[in-house]
């Protein structure tokens, strides 16, 4: 009698899962070069990048050009040595082989960037700083940048953990209990779709500090998708699972903890992923507007001083942090949902 709903629920879980999996899956560039060949070319490209730094004089006043060239030569040497050492490096070598095309292309990109900015200024200068000026930011402005990173991570982590926990508990409650659903569902429908950033002006004067206001907003941005996905996950668990557990003597707590939640977990992770994305947006906006710390604030500050290199440097860090957080989330999911391997396409 419940076959229809079972297959529907599974199909839903699968499509949501696949959507998330597609985002997390690295694109597989399947070049097939002779072993080591690409490694040698990548090494040559990095030498080329180093030479491009030294060959022409800089048209601006940058202090790290020589160090950048030296670093390029060191990288070229490392790639060359690793390629020559070949199979003696075992797994590392396999990884290198896989990434060699990327190493090659990034060296070419860096060379183009260097030549187009520092050497001939094909791109207008203050707005498009050369690689060495970004290196300069990382070396000379490191303390301030580290402070900003720390502030951002702290704010993001606090808000995200609170939002995910509250969202998960709310989702399970409304998925499980009709009466909780009766009261929470309309509120969720009314408030949920509102972008969390719309609360910014109110939040900043109702909360005691800009930090607590931002934490609240990040939690809100995280909580909504987590709640909705957890709820739909719990609600779509097949009745057959409950029937089986009940005939085996399961009490309601067992049905929630050992049936509903594990069955809903694939949905929950989709919610956590979506929540992470929208909370990043809130984090940056909150830092740009109210919080006097963090990478968003750093961006704003750099713009005020027309320090474009600092902006690019901060953007790169920000993107590394965000993609790192998402990678971490997917690793966690892959560990917890190992049973899905073979059930859905990863």
């Amino acid at each position: 009698m419940s076959t229809y709903s079972v297959s529907k629920a599974v199909a839903l879980a699968q499509s949501a899962e696949e959507g998330a999996a597609l985002v997390g899956r690295p694109p597989s560039l399947s070049f097939s070069f002779p072993a080591g060949g690409t490694g040698v070319f990548a090494s040559l490209a990095w030498i080329g990048f180093g030479i491009s730094c030294l060959w022409w004089p800089d048209i601006g006043d940058w202090t790290r050009t020589h160090q950048l060239a030296a670093a390029a030569f060191v990288i070229a040497g490392a790639i060359f040595l690793a390629t020559v050492a070949g199979s003696r490096l075992g797994r590392f070598n396999a990884g290198l082989q896989k990434r060699a095309p990327w190493l090659l292309v990034s060296a070419l990109f860096l060379t183009l960037w260097e030549v187009a900015t520092a050497k001939f200024a094909w791109l207008p200068l203050p707005f498009f700083p050369p690689p060495q000026s970004i290196i300069e930011v990382y070396t000379d402005d490191l303390p301030k940048l580290l402070d900003s990173i720390f502030a951002s991570v702290k704010l993001q982590l606090g808000g995200y953990v609170i939002g995910a926990a509250v969202g998960f508990l709310t989702g399970v409650s409304i998925g499980w209990s009709r009466s909780v659903g009766y009261w929470v569902h309309p509120v969720l429908r009314f408030i949920g779709p509102l972008p969390a950033t719309a609360w910014l002006p109110i939040a900043f004067f109702t909360f005691p500090s800009s930090w607590s206001a931002s934490t609240f907003l990040i939690a809100l941005a995280t909580g909504f998708p987590v709640t909705v996905l957890t709820w739909s996950g719990v609600a779509s668990v097949s009745n057959a699972y409950y029937d089986v557990a009940r005939t085996l003597g399961a009490k309601p707590s067992f049905l929630v903890l050992k049936v509903a939640i594990p069955a809903a977990l694939p949905h929950v992770f989709v919610g956590l992923f979506m929540g992470l994305g929208s909370s990043f947006a809130v984090l940056v906006v909150a830092e740009m507007i109210g919080v006097k710390a963090g990478l968003g604030w750093y961006l704003q500050w750099a713009q005020g001083w027309a320090a474009y290199a600092n902006m690019y440097a901060a953007l790169i860090v920000m993107s590394l942090l965000c993609s790192g957080a998402i990678t971490l989330l997917f690793r966690t999911r892959d560990r917890l949902l190992i049973w899905q391997k073979g059930v859905v396409k990863w």
């Binding site: 079972v6 029937d243 089986v244 005939t247 594990p262 069955a263 977990l265 949902l337 899905q340 059930v343």
Partner: peptide, 14 residues
């Protein structure tokens, strides 16, 4: 009184 259903309905996560 335990039931074995037409579908095995094993819990896929276990």
């Amino acid at each position: 009184r335990v039931v074995v259903f037409q579908d095995p309905t094993l819990f896929p996560w276990r």
